[in-house]
Design a protein around this nucleic acid. Structure first.
Lengths: 243, 243
DNA sequence: CGTGTTTTTGACTTCAGTCAATTAAAGTGG
DNA sequence: CCACTTTAATTGACTGAAGTCAAAAACACG
């Protein structure tokens, strides 16, 4: 369907033939409940999926039972591109909310790339940006203090969710629980709770129910050492870029 | 030259024509001293490089001056593939030792991918494995204790350097200082020193000068929660796989 | 040899984790 | 609409892993 074509065409010029090829790919729609797995570590999946609705996390387990969330993905993201090139999944992909995905055959997609190099470029770009985000998360976990880690994550979510609102009003439905924030930032839930409270007390965010309002993005970004470059959002498409 | 072709052909079947196209790519050789930069964050590079000799690290700086090393790469690795698809570098690439690189024009490589989809697949695979390693590092930094983080890093290096030696003798020249280990694992140099000493006292490793001998890879891997799956080394090519 | 790294050690601090209990919210079913 | 259960958020008291500061020792190298 067109969802994939519009995603891939966002940063790469695709010809009409490229787009036609994408839209004519065989695709199966699946709906999954919160908590169900799209891929499990160790699987040998033969499909790649586009997330159409909802949120998924990618995670790895440590031997002591600890979990590291290595990515969060949202509607429009390709959530398991690695299946295209390596046989065995090195991490799990799990629905954070009820989700809807379009699944494509790995082989069909590979075949399409042969005929349509521009599509290959677009998919390669997706992977490279994913990789860039992973590096930033590593830096977040390795080199920042707890409250800054959380501030950084919130800024990233605000950017990626692309919440509407004027320059000084960013608010969005937070898809993660504090425990999931903890697993994304290398912290414990208790400490996340205290750190979020700190951000709240500092008046950088406001919370109600599941929604979060970033009171002052500039200051929060500064506090969280967030600069959007690593997201590789083209400048023209995003006037809010902080540099 | 053939170095690139043999690297890309390692996991992907390349035709004679593919290989010919790769070997005829225009390429310039560069030698850089220890400490010099191949790419700096913020650059807009127009080349991609194959590391032929030596080690490089990729790193990001936090605003408080902290440095996170997000990858280490060794002879045979493509060290800045992201230049192929995004305009601005989101991290720096720096020589850890004196290095020799082959630099290819980004545009020439992109053009080659159009004619030779198999080469594109091979490059995509490189990126995907790089991404997998980044996720594992994130897990290492986020979810393991200091001595385990270091043990994990040492196991990865032993695997990737592919040091010769029988099943119970892995030794290699350690290319990183303790400070660099610290920046790779999200620790401080002092704490790295103490943790390495612990590994030594536990008889998991032996040190002399810059070389490290892993006394018991199995136990060290166990201690460091290291399983090689994330490196995506095909099983036939690596009998040592720990699972 | 002398100079600059790199490694090592000690003493002390602090950020983040642990344990445990309470409160608040979100469902569920009668 | 209200008990009842479950999940998520919060708080307090205490512990512990890792950071900081500072100095000494060991190397590496011209």
């Amino acid at each position: 369907m067109e969802a994939l074509a519009s995603r891939l065409g966002a940063h790469t010029d695709l010809s009409a033939a490229d787009i036609a090829a994408i839209t004519s790919l065989a695709m199966s729609e699946r709906r999954l409940e919160r908590g169900s797995y799209v891929v499990r570590e160790g699987d040998r999946p033969s499909q790649c999926s586009l997330l159409v609705e909802g949120y998924v996390i990618r995670q790895k387990l440590a031997s002591d039972g600890g979990r590291q969330i290595v990515a969060i993905q949202m509607a429009g993201d390709l959530i398991d591109l690695q299946n295209l090139m390596v046989a065995t999944a090195d991490h799990s992909v799990q629905a954070l909310t009820p989700i809807r995905i379009f699944a494509f055959s790995r082989d069909a997609l590979l075949a399409l790339l042969v005929e349509h190099p521009a599509v290959g470029r677009a998919i390669m770009r997706e992977t490279i940006v994913e990789c860039s985000i992973a590096r930033e998360w590593m830096t977040n976990v390795g080199r920042r203090q707890a409250p800054a880690r959380i501030a950084h994550l919130l800024c990233e979510l605000a950017y990626r969710i692309g919440c509407e609102g004027s320059v000084d009003d960013y608010s969005f439905e937070m898809p993660m629980t504090q425990e999931q924030i903890a697993d994304s930032t290398g912290l414990t839930p208790v400490h996340v709770n205290r750190s979020i409270k700190l951000l709240d007390d500092m008046n950088l965010i406001e919370r109600s129910r599941r929604s979060i309002r970033i009171v002052d993005l500039r200051t929060l970004a500064d506090f969280g050492d967030f600069r959007s470059r690593y997201l590789h959002i083209p400048r023209e498409r995003d006037a809010r870029e902080l540099d």
